[in-house]
Each structure stands twice: as structure tokens, then as C-alpha cells.
Amino acid sequence: MSLQDFFRPDGRHLSRGGILLLMAPFFMLIAFAFLYPLISLLSLSVTEPTAGFDNYARILDNPVYGKVLLRTLWTALLVAITSLLLAFPVAMAMVSSSGPVAMLIGACILLPFWSSVLVRTAAWAVLLQRNGLINEAMQWFGITSEPIRLLYTQGAVVVAMTHVLMPFMVLPIYGALRNIPEDYGRAALICGAGPLRVFTEVTFPLALPGVLGGFILVFLTALGYFITPALLGSPQDMMIATLISQQLREFLDWPFAAALVGVLTLFVTAITLAFSKIFRFDRMMGGQV
């Protein structure tokens, strides 16, 4: 088989066989590093200590686990909404800017990728402690008369996770906004629409694929987040990833932890399928509308 067999007649695009050949190493890596461990872990949840669904029954019988799952879903939703509200203006500023200003905004968005999540979470722990910068600033401005509890709360978890995950919201929205022709906005203004109406009826609807792509990306990532909730949250605000870690490290209950992973996997899969059914994923990452 010659190299030409992997290209289409135009010589510029790969054939289906060429695409499969290039994707083969990626699929092998996914199968070895993700699918095999996941399937092995899920099989443990229905085979140990006895065959059956006893581990899943424990989750249904104890309302605490249901509350942890609902808290996880609620926290992930808050993080996704907050990230969207903060990311959209930033993405619009990136599209509207040029030269050094655009480079500065882009650097601020990409800079967090250069440090680990642990470092960024530890920085928030320093800022939110009783003698931290935020408490001292609020006392200096007269907002509070004494330090208040900011650390080890759900609010601290939401704020820190939003800071960590917001770049994953900005980039899809930025891609979608860049694909909107400038003539659309000018035409709306010529027809008598005000800036607010141009945004609500032209800009935002056309940017919706990027908004949805960023939202589902941040939401699904937040569902399984571990480091930030573990360091900044309290035991009363435990999320499911922290609960799984507790079952593994403290109780050594691998079958029950595997059942919790199965429940989380089920929720993530169901949410992903629901979004893929309603929206096309090839249009959700900033593609043309």
C-alpha cells in the first residue's frame, strides 16, 4: 500500500483509512489508560464483596450519599454559571482588542495554565484565611469589624474552582465570537437597533455554540474536581470526589468507592448524551453557526 492510498483524489485531504491510521495511537492510549482501568474498577463494584449490586444499594439506602451527589451537582452548576458570567465579557474584550491589549488579555487567560492547580488553590487558601488579605481589606474598608469565616466554606470552593476553570469557558466563547462577521452588527445598527438589542439578538445567539461548549466543559470538569474542594471545603460541604478519596484512603473500601465512581460516571454520561442530543458538538466549540 502506497502513501497515496491514504489521501483523497484532491491530494490535500486524508482518506478514511488515513484518518483511522493517524488516530490509532490515540485510541490505543485511551483504551489502555482510561477504558481498561475504568472497566476494571466498575466491575469491582458488582463483584466484591459478593456478586450483585449491594454497593449501589448502600448509596440508595443512606441519604448522606444522595446529599453529597446533589451538592456536587449544585456546586458544579454554580461554578459553570459564575464562569460564564465572568468569561463572556473577557471574551468580548479579547475580540474587540488588538495589539498589546489583546496580547495582555490573552496572557492573563493563559497564565494560569503555567502553574499547577495545587498552587492556585493554595493561593486562595492564603487569601481567604482569617488573617488573609481579603479579611484585612474588608476590615480596613469598614465592611466588617472582625475577621469572618471565608475558608472551608462552599463559597470558597466555588470562587476557587471558578478561577481555575474560567479559561476553559473563555476560549470557546472567544472562538465563537471571532467567527461572527462584523457586518452583522453594523447591519443591525443601521437598521436602528441599539447596542443592547444587537447583543441580545445578534451577538449572543451567534455565540451560543461557544457558550454551550464552554458551559458543558466547565460543568463536567467541576463534577469530578478533587484538589480544590478537598483543600478549601469543609467536611459538611464534601463533594463526591472527596468522598471517593475518603473511601479509598481512610476506609480502604474499594468496592464501595468503585460504586460511587459508577454513579458519577452514569451522571456524566447522561448529561453528555443529553447535550449531544440537543446540540451538535461540532458546533459547540466556537464553530460557524
Rank of each mutant, 00 (worst) to 15 (best):
D10E: 10
G18I: 03
I19K: 04
L22C: 08
P25N: 07
F26C: 08
I30M: 09
F32Y: 15
L35N: 06
S40R: 15
S40N: 15
V46I: 15
T47W: 06
T50C: 06
A51H: 05
F53K: 03
Y65G: 15
L69G: 14
L69F: 14
L69E: 11
L85D: 09
F88P: 10
M94Q: 06
S96N: 10
V101A: 12
C108D: 00
S116C: 05
S116T: 13
R120M: 01
G132S: 01
I134F: 00
Q139N: 10
E146I: 01
L150G: 15
Q154P: 02
G155E: 04
A156I: 11
T162M: 02
L165Y: 04
P172C: 09
E182T: 06
Y184A: 06
Y184R: 03
G185F: 09
P195I: 08
R197M: 11
V198F: 06
F199K: 12
L220G: 09
A222D: 08
L231Y: 11
S234W: 08
A241S: 12
L243S: 12
S245N: 11
E250D: 15
L252H: 14
D253L: 06
W254V: 08
F267D: 03
F267A: 09
T269A: 11
S276F: 04
F281I: 10
M284A: 07
M285N: 07
